[in-house]
């Protein structure tokens, strides 16, 4: 196993777990949405680590495509969550 794989792989795991923990511990919607995005970033990092095959080799493009899909899905979910959170604040203000 490459050192690069181990270093970034562990970082990915850390981001995933940190995000998960954040979602469960926070109470405000915005903080939870942030944590979910961190959690997702961790999983994406793991995918990209899988794709990396060392300096001289072409990386595996499949995980890259999956992560691109994942990033777009994450931003969509974030947009919906933020719209719901904003609506909630509006209701509370009226």
């Amino acid at each position: 196993m490459l050192a690069t794989t181990i270093i970034y792989g562990f970082a990915g795991i850390c981001l995933f777990v940190l995000g998960l923990r954040g979602v469960l511990l926070h109470t405000t919607a915005l903080a939870r949405i942030l944590a979910l995005n961190v959690c997702g970033a961790g999983v994406f990092l793991l995918f990209v680590v899988l794709a990396y095959r060392g300096a001289g080799m072409t990386p595996d493009p499949v995980p890259h495509a999956l992560v691109l899909t994942g990033i777009v899905v994450a931003v969509s979910a974030t947009a919906l969550a933020l719209a719901l959170a904003r609506r909630l604040r509006e209701i509370d203000h009226d």
Binding site: G19, V23, A29, I33, L36, G40, V43, L50, L80, A81
Partner: peptide
Amino acid sequence: LRYLTIGLLGSMAFLAGVVVLY
């Protein structure tokens, strides 16, 4: 909002499983 948050958390766990499988 709660349904969305929890659901996304579930999807993330599922996706992490997919990483390990791949």
